[in-house]
């Protein structure tokens, strides 16, 4: 089974893939080494290595996602793009990025959410209870209701569906009731 299928198969398989990738010294050294050679600090390069794994796993959930080169090259390209685009760095840190477009990997999409937008979204999500967060997370990962019911110890799929529905409505309501956050999130 290829690695993308393993991520999609189950949460346990996905978590094992995450552990394996993170602990793979060859991949780790390749990604971090490449960024450091390009001028990135080692501390940032380590962070971007983590980000590249997160991005890869998120990408696996997109139905049409596939890797054309090796996984190592994909992660290197991802980490490069994340670094050059300053995706995970806050603009308030004062870092400006005038990266040469030619240095990025155009075929690699970054699915990570920027720091600024994370802060805004957290303001909304923190108003959801933990159960809703968990149910919505499982649903967002395309888990079936039966699977959600099992993991959340609900008596039936119907209960899981009902809970998901409630949580989703709650989330919609939170966004609609926070005009300022909504306004800021509406900005590109």
């Amino acid at each position: 089974m290829d690695i993308i299928s393993r991520v999609r198969k189950s949460i346990e398989d996905r978590n094992e893939v995450i552990r394996t990738l993170y602990q793979d010294q060859v991949i780790r050294n390749a990604v971090i080494g490449t960024l450091v050679k390009m001028g990135c600090s080692e501390a940032d390069a380590k962070d971007h290595f983590t980000d590249s794994i997160v991005n890869f796993i998120k990408a696996c959930y997109k139905p049409d996602f596939e890797i054309r080169s090796s996984l190592t090259n994909y992660l290197i390209g991802t980490a490069k793009n994340i670094w050059l685009k300053g995706v995970t760095k806050s603009k308030r840190e004062g870092t400006t990025f005038n990266y040469p477009t030619a240095m990025t990997e155009p075929s690699i999409e970054i699915h990570l959410i920027s720091s600024e937008r994370k802060q805004l979204l957290h303001l909304l999500l923190n108003q959801l209870d933990q159960t809703c967060r968990k149910v919505l997370t499982l649903w967002a990962i395309n888990k079936k209701m039966k699977d959600i019911a099992t993991r959340m110890s609900y008596k039936s799929e119907g209960m899981a569906r009902k809970k998901k529905h409630q949580c989703l409505r709650r989330l919609y309501a939170l966004i609609d009731s926070n005009q300022q956050i909504k306004s800021e999130l509406s900005e590109p």
Partner: peptide, 19 residues
């Protein structure tokens, strides 16, 4: 779109928790 992004963040944080 904002709800989708919020759900994306939930996925991302779930992955980061494992890391």
């Amino acid at each position: 779109s904002m709800v989708s992004e919020a759900l994306e963040l939930l996925i991302e944080e779930d992955i980061r928790s494992i890391v």
